[in-house]
Computed example of a mutant assay.
Amino acid sequence: MRPKSVILGERLSFLAMLLLLVLAVLGWNDTVAQAGAAIAVIANGLLIGLFLLATLLVTRMASRGGLVFLAILTVLNLLGFLYQVSEGALAQGLFGVLTSVQAAASLVAVVMLMRPNAMAWYRTMAEVSEA
C-alpha cells in the first residue's frame, strides 16, 4: 500500500503537469512566433513527457533513480521560474499566476515524495523486488 505522501505527491505532480499543458496552450502563439511550431511541440511534449515518466517511475515503481530525476527536473523548473522573477519577465495576469502555481505544485510534490514514510516505502519496495 502506497503511503499518503506518495499519493499526494503523485496528485500534485499530475497537477503541475496539467498546468504545464495549460501554459503550453496559453503561450502557444508566442512560442510558435519565436521558435516555430515544430520546436514548440517538441519542447512542450518533451518537458511534459519527462515529468510524466519521472512521476510514474517514482509513484508506481518506487524508483529512487526516478525520484532523483524528478528532483532534477523540478530544480531546473524552479530555476527557470526564479530567473523569470528576478528579471521581471514573469508574465502578468493569469499566465503568471498559473506559472507560479505550477512551480509551487511541482516543488511540493517532490517534497511529499521525499518524506520519511515515502522513503521507507521505496526501501520496502526495493527489498520486495530483490526477493
Rank of each mutant, 00 (worst) to 15 (best):
residue 68 V to D: 04
residue 24 A to K: 03
residue 100 S to E: 04
residue 97 V to I: 15
residue 126 A to F: 02
residue 116 P to T: 03
residue 117 N to C: 02
residue 55 T to M: 03
residue 42 I to K: 09
residue 45 G to P: 14
residue 118 A to S: 11
residue 121 W to Q: 08
residue 76 L to I: 10
residue 51 F to Q: 07
residue 37 A to D: 06
residue 7 I to V: 12
residue 39 I to Y: 14
residue 40 A to K: 06
residue 19 L to N: 03
residue 22 V to T: 11
residue 66 G to C: 02
residue 11 R to A: 02
residue 123 R to P: 07
residue 18 L to N: 02
residue 118 A to C: 01
residue 118 A to P: 00
residue 22 V to K: 06
residue 108 V to Y: 14
residue 86 S to H: 11
residue 89 A to K: 14
residue 111 V to A: 14
residue 43 A to R: 09
residue 6 V to A: 03
residue 120 A to I: 08
residue 34 Q to H: 15
residue 114 M to Y: 08
residue 119 M to Y: 03
residue 64 R to M: 12
residue 36 G to C: 12
residue 110 V to D: 08
residue 104 A to G: 12
residue 45 G to Q: 11
residue 131 A to Q: 07
residue 123 R to D: 15
residue 67 L to K: 02
residue 15 L to S: 05
residue 20 L to K: 04
residue 50 L to S: 11
residue 17 M to H: 03
residue 88 G to L: 11
residue 49 G to C: 09
residue 42 I to A: 14
residue 84 Q to N: 15
residue 103 A to H: 12
residue 80 G to K: 09
residue 29 N to E: 13
residue 97 V to H: 05
residue 70 L to R: 03
residue 6 V to N: 01
residue 23 L to H: 10
residue 84 Q to R: 13
residue 12 L to Q: 05
residue 67 L to P: 09
residue 75 V to E: 09
residue 11 R to Y: 00
residue 130 E to F: 00
residue 12 L to P: 09
residue 19 L to Y: 03
residue 65 G to S: 10
residue 5 S to P: 10
residue 52 L to N: 02
residue 127 E to R: 07
residue 119 M to I: 11
residue 127 E to K: 10
residue 30 D to N: 14
residue 59 T to D: 02
residue 127 E to I: 02
residue 105 A to Q: 08
residue 74 T to E: 10
residue 70 L to C: 01
residue 61 M to G: 01
residue 64 R to W: 08
residue 106 S to G: 01
residue 71 A to Q: 04
residue 131 A to K: 08
residue 97 V to A: 14
residue 121 W to I: 05
residue 54 A to I: 00
residue 41 V to F: 08
residue 39 I to P: 07
residue 102 Q to C: 12
residue 25 V to R: 06
residue 108 V to Q: 05
residue 107 L to W: 07
residue 93 G to Y: 09
residue 86 S to N: 13
residue 130 E to K: 04
residue 101 V to Y: 06
residue 82 L to Y: 15
residue 102 Q to K: 14
residue 105 A to W: 12
residue 17 M to Q: 09
residue 63 S to H: 04
residue 33 A to R: 10
residue 27 G to T: 08
residue 42 I to Q: 12
residue 74 T to C: 13
residue 42 I to C: 06
residue 26 L to A: 09
residue 93 G to M: 10
residue 64 R to P: 08
residue 104 A to E: 05
residue 17 M to W: 01
residue 16 A to Q: 02
residue 72 I to W: 11
residue 84 Q to V: 00
residue 101 V to A: 07
residue 95 F to I: 14
residue 4 K to F: 05
residue 120 A to N: 03
residue 26 L to K: 10
residue 7 I to Y: 02
residue 121 W to L: 04
residue 62 A to D: 01
residue 5 S to A: 04
residue 83 Y to L: 14
residue 66 G to T: 00
residue 113 L to C: 06
residue 130 E to I: 00
residue 95 F to E: 13
residue 11 R to C: 04
residue 22 V to M: 10
residue 14 F to E: 04
residue 60 R to L: 03
residue 26 L to T: 12
residue 113 L to D: 03
residue 19 L to M: 06
residue 4 K to G: 07
residue 35 A to H: 15
residue 84 Q to D: 15
residue 44 N to E: 11
residue 94 L to R: 15
residue 22 V to N: 05
residue 65 G to P: 01
residue 58 V to W: 12
residue 22 V to L: 14
residue 58 V to T: 08
residue 24 A to P: 01
residue 64 R to N: 13
residue 129 S to V: 03
residue 27 G to Y: 09
residue 72 I to D: 09
residue 18 L to Y: 03
residue 113 L to W: 05
residue 108 V to I: 15
residue 95 F to R: 11
residue 58 V to K: 09
residue 114 M to Q: 02
residue 6 V to P: 04
